[in-house]
Computed example of a mutant assay.
Amino acid sequence: MEYLETPQGRRIAYNRTAGQGPGVVFLGGFKSDMEGTKALYLQDWAEKTGRAFLRFDYSGHGQSSEDFLDGCIGDWAEDAVAAISALTEGPQVLVGSSMGGWIALLVSRALPERVAGLVGVAAAPDFTEDSMWNGFSTAQRAALDEHGQVELPSEYSDEPYIITRKLIEDGRRHLVLRDYLGLPFPVRLLQGTADLDVPQEVALRLLAHAEGEDIRLTLVKGADHRFSTPDCLDLIAASVGEVLARADG
């Protein structure tokens, strides 16, 4: 475990594996961390194949500094840009899980010369607006306005998600499905049909909206949002391998 001080003064925990390029960077999900199944599986895959690999915790996540409730999409995208800029060399293949898929798209805008390809796993672009805000009741929107936060139940923890007004308002400044989204590199989107958090319609919308010559979507019947069964993990690795082969070519 090592730490990076970002230009914004946040302390980001990371784990880096040396290897050949283009490297692979794992971008985790909302309230997730770099010790998750997919991140560790990809690190093992990278070590076996001799590929450079980076995983890290956004601020407010895992072992990084800051409080989760103080963070927002813009902060976490800044963390990703800082980590990739300081801790990797040359082009990278970004693997974005859930919220990490949105972060990957923001990184591709901020650092286009550093992105060799992208693999989205149940990617959730614009979820603060399209899933959270649009799904809030009148009472929840009023609570958010009056108290600055609202609680949502979580399938993954006994503790509810606390959604802040800052998260919603900042998310609106980073939406990617409302205007041109150019992805001029190999893109593989993976999506389970039994995903209750990010429905397959989101993946289809991203596929239709993004502009690029090598963008493919694979739907896996019955896979849920975790996308962490042995078959799903193998598919992630195979997709990363395919993107790397095309990037190398």
Results as ranks from 00 to 15, higher is better:
230 P>C: 04
90 G>D: 05
220 V>P: 04
238 A>W: 04
39 A>K: 01
203 A>E: 03
113 E>A: 15
30 F>R: 07
92 Q>E: 11
201 E>W: 08
53 F>Y: 15
27 L>S: 03
169 E>W: 11
127 F>A: 07
228 S>F: 05
199 P>W: 09
30 F>V: 01
38 K>P: 05
9 G>E: 10
19 G>P: 05
174 H>V: 02
31 K>R: 15
101 G>Y: 01
228 S>K: 09
66 E>S: 14
123 A>L: 07
25 V>Y: 00
66 E>H: 13
130 D>A: 12
233 L>K: 12
93 V>N: 10
113 E>Q: 15
207 L>Q: 07
185 F>S: 04
167 L>E: 05
145 D>H: 14
15 N>I: 09
71 G>K: 02
234 D>M: 12
32 S>Y: 01
177 L>S: 00
148 G>T: 13
37 T>M: 09
169 E>D: 15
59 S>I: 00
51 R>F: 07
7 P>C: 05
55 R>C: 10
14 Y>W: 09
190 L>H: 03
40 L>N: 14
147 H>S: 14
154 S>R: 13
62 G>K: 01
44 D>F: 11
238 A>V: 00
143 A>N: 12
74 G>H: 08
145 D>C: 08
6 T>I: 10
88 T>D: 03
195 D>C: 03
43 Q>M: 15
144 L>M: 13
243 V>P: 07
62 G>C: 04
88 T>Q: 10
165 R>V: 00
79 D>K: 03
184 P>Q: 06
156 Y>I: 08
215 I>P: 02
38 K>H: 10
165 R>A: 15
126 D>W: 06
42 L>P: 08
188 R>I: 02
70 D>E: 14
42 L>W: 05
20 Q>L: 13
211 E>A: 11
182 G>E: 02
168 I>R: 09
119 V>E: 03
11 R>Y: 00
41 Y>D: 02
230 P>D: 12
60 G>Y: 04
32 S>M: 06
19 G>Q: 07
246 R>P: 09
198 V>H: 00
5 E>A: 13
33 D>T: 00
202 V>I: 14
128 T>C: 04
8 Q>G: 03
113 E>M: 12
